[in-house]
Structures are given as C-alpha cells and as structure tokens.
Nucleic acid binder design. Structure first.
Length: 423
RNA sequence: GGAGAGAUGCCAGAGCGGUCGAAUGGGGCGGUCUCGAAAACCGUUGUUCGGGCAACCGGACCCAGGGUUCGAAUCCCUGUCUCUCCGCCA
C-alpha cells in the first residue's frame, strides 16, 4: 500500500497517475490526510499525558520510599484523572489508525510514468515481438483435441476425480510437464536465482503482505478449518519469506525462484476462452521473485523481462511483449509486462508470463526494509514474474508443433523429455 | 488428538512490581597495536511515532490482545506459535 507520507509528498502527481488506472483518488486522499492530522494531534496529546503520569509515578515511588505516604496519596489522585483522559484519547487514536488503514488498502499502486492510459486489452502497448506466428490451415487441431488424440492430457478424468479445471496428465504428457519444470528451474539457476520450495498454503498475514487480501480472497481456495489459503502463485510464499525483515543492502538483488502448483478459483470465468488448458484451477508454474534497491528495480524489471523472453526463444515459440495499460494492470503493480505466445490452431495469443515491479507497495504492507546509505530505514522494492506458467506453454507447443501424426518437441527440451516426438 | 515446558535485542542468555530499552557473553562496526593480519585492549552497536533546521526532547515497543496497579519484561486472563513426551502416520 501507499504510505500517508508518500501521499502527502506526491499529492497531485499521484492523483494524476492513478487516473490512468481509472481510480479517482482526490477525495480519498483528502480524507486520509485529515485523518492523519487527527492522528498526529491525538497522539501528541496522549503522549503529553503519558509523560506527565510517568513523572508522577516516579515521584510516588520516591515518596513511598521516603515514608511520605500522605503526599503519595495526593499524587495518586492526580494520576487517576490523567488516566481517565488518556483512555478517551487512546480510543480515538486506535479508531483513527484503523480507519486510516482501511482507507489505505483500498488504493491501488500508482502506475509508472510509462504506463499507457486505457481500459481494455486493446490499449496495451506492444513493446517487442519475436518470431513469425505460424499460419496453419483449417485442418490444424486445437490442443484439447491433440491431448485426446495422443492420450497425454485427460480432462474428463480430472472432472471425475475433482471437477472442471483439474486435468490429469498422462504418459508423455506428464513427462513433458516434468521436463518443462526442470528446464525452467535449471535455466533460472543459471541466471542466478536461488531455488526454494515454499509451502503451498499460506496464512492470512502472507496473503495480506503480497496484496491478495483483503480484496481478492474470493480468488483463493480457503481451508476454513485451519484458516489457510492455497497459493494462487509462488509469489505469495516466496515474497513473504522477507515479510517483517530488514535485508542487507549489500545483498541486493535478492533473486529467488520456485516451482509450485498454483490454485485459483477463477470465479466468474467461463466460455470458450477457458477451454482446454487455457484456464485451470490447478496448474504448475515456475516463478521468479526479486527484492531489489529502489534505484535498480526498473533495470531489474527489464532484466527479468529479457530472461523470460530468452526462455520463449529457447522453446521456439513466437511471442510478443505487452506493456499493460492502466486498466489492465493488477491492483498492486506499478508496471507490468505480459508475454504472450501465439497458439496457431486457436489463432490467438495466450498470456504465459506477467512480469511486474511493485515498487514499495508490497514492502510497505509487509515491512520489508533495508538500511540505506544515510543509515535510514527504507522500503525495498519487490518484483516477480512467471518463468514460466506451464499450461499455455504446453498448449502452444502442441498446437504450433503438430505434424500429421506426431508433435515435435523443441530441441532445448529434448534432454529433459528424453523423447523427440509425441506420437 | 492427550500431557508438560517455553516465547526477552543480530544470536546465546539474565532479569526482586519502581532508578530496565533492558545485565553478561558472542557477533557486527570504529579505534589502539602491527609492514599486514591474528590475539589483546578501548569504544560503539534497536525499531517506531510525534516535536525541532539541528544538537536534542517526549511517547510506544521484552510473541499478540485484554486486565490488576500510582507504576508491569516482571502478577492475572485469553489467543497464537515453538519445543519435549505419548498416540497416529507419509
């Protein structure tokens, strides 16, 4: 979230930039600032009263020691008054702070200057592309049919065992999943990311830290009995490793990677866009998470974007890179690049990665700090990206590499699959 | 699931209800010594809110939330977590 000081210092600038996310901030900002004024004033009064009663308590102690019980008794009466007054003040203070927090969490992150205005996917800006989208004739088969034809992914079986959106991968299909995970993890290690294996369930504080809560709890599976959420992405547990910590500035950039299953309720999604592997309730993903110095977070974002693009080139998948417009960005992001691969039989672009800089938005929520050159505490910047999400990569691989009676595996992957063709 | 123990600063580990933001040791940082290093010795070593240009001053913080008290790290209640033993178990 934003801090009140950030809002005070960048009042007009933030209002303007939040408008790009179609968020009207002015009234809210005014309310926040006046609440914060009240907070300060109340706290000041309360502090003064506490100081006085601390002094009195000290005196009372001395008086008792000196055997002047009657004078001590008089002083006691005065502290009673102070106590009463402070009770009211601290109640006002607690309410004010709670109110302030409630308002602050409703403000999305301020978009970076380069974020284009707009509300729709069409307003996203294409900043890079690679490869020629394959043109296929009408006989091209979509991946969900290929999956059945070669018996590698069984959607019906998943329906039976669990429900829609939980496919069963079989034979070379399962092997392909494992190959991709290993390939992505090995590449991430080569690029300097430290591999971690996080829990797949998180508590409420973690969900709050990365910004899934309090807003989007409907998107996560929740285990009521234990108050735990199934992770929608490894971003949540991996970033929360650093919740409430002061990291060493000399450790920047802190680069982690994790493979995890991801669980998403996807409430409200339906239609042909969600067919086959396009949108699932459970899927596999390798995530990269970086904690960095504010001065370097944007060059790190570019680095992460380049890294993700290199993976797509290795997999020989034509892709394009979009800079998301204000309306299409997530609540918590300041700048996001989406990588989309072309899926030849569906004749559409599929989002396979999303790389974002959250600046200090998550850090402020989770108190992730470092000591800067002046010796002062400062919020670190957090970034993350998919590298990569498997299902749509598989969809594109199947569709783009289909031949008459087999599917070709890209060269880089063969050492991992152990086979060159699915047939 | 049953029984018990505990939660203190970067770590280890003390702490009679008042002078405790907290002993001591280790680590870290600065210095003396040294060609340099080690050892030894000396000094230093928290977060946060408010006021002030600043030196500085005041408040809060010893798991969290309540309570007792003029006064709580210290006493009481509740919650959370950790550890040990038993049971179950990949």
């Amino acid at each position: 979230m934003l801090s009140v000081n950030q809002i005070r210092e960048n009042y007009q600038d933030y209002i303007n930039r939040l408008a790009i996310k179609n968020f009207k901030a002015q009234e809210l900002f005014n309310e926040i600032i006046s609440l914060d004024d009240l907070r300060k004033q109340t706290q000041k009064e309360s502090d003064e009263i506490l100081a006085e009663s601390n002094n009195l308590s000290r005196e009372i102690g001395q008086l008792f020691k000196a055997g002047k019980a009657d004078e001590a008794q008089k002083a006691k009466e005065r502290t009673a008054e102070l106590k009463e007054r402070n009770k009211e003040l601290s109640e006002i203070l607690a309410n004010t702070i709670a109110h302030l927090d409630r308002l602050l969490v409703t403000i999305p992150n301020v978009p970076h200057q380069s974020v284009p205005a707009g509300k729709l996917a069409e307003d996203n800006e294409i900043v890079n592309s690679w490869g020629e989208p394959a043109v296929m004739d009408e006989t091209a088969i979509p991946h969900w049919e290929l999956a059945t034809k070669y018996d590698i992914i069984d959607f019906e079986l998943g329906n039976k065992i669990t429900g829609a959106g939980f496919p069963v991968y079989k034979g070379k299909g399962a092997r392909l999943q494992r190959a991709l995970i290993n390939f992505f993890l090995d590449r991430a290690a080569d690029a300097g990311f430290k591999e971690v294996q996080p829990p797949l369930m998180v508590n409420e504080a973690s969900g709050y830290g990365t910004g899934q809560l309090p807003d989007k709890d409907g998107q996560m599976y929740f285990v009521n009995e234990d108050g735990l959420y199934l992770i929608p992405t490894a971003e949540v547990p991996v970033t929360n490793i650093y919740r409430n910590t002061i990291v060493n500035a000399t450790d920047f950039p802190i680069k982690n990677t994790a493979y995890s299953a991801c669980f998403r309720r996807e409430a409200g999604s339906y239609g042909k866009d969600v067919r086959g592997l396009n949108r699932l309730h459970q899927f596999d993903k390798v995530e990269i998470v970086v904690i960095d110095h504010p001065d370097h977070s944007y060059s790190m974002l570019e680095e992460m974007s380049s890294y993700v693009q290199s993976l797509l080139r290795d997999l020989e998948l034509p892709y394009r890179v979009l800079r998301l417009c204000g309306g299409d960005m997530s609540f918590t992001s300041a700048l996001t690049y989406d990588m989309e691969v072309y899926s030849a039989a569906q004749k559409r672009w599929l989002e396979v990665s999303s790389v974002s800089n959250f600046e200090s938005y998550q850090s402020t929520r989770m108190k992730l700090r470092f000591k800067n050159d002046e010796g002062k505490m400062q919020m670190a910047h957090t970034l993350n990206g998919s590298a990569l999400a498997l299902p749509r990569i598989v969809a594109a691989l199947l569709e783009n590499n289909q031949e008459n009676d087999r599917i070709r595996i890209p060269k880089a992957l063969i050492p991992y699959t152990g086979f060159e063709f699915i047939d």
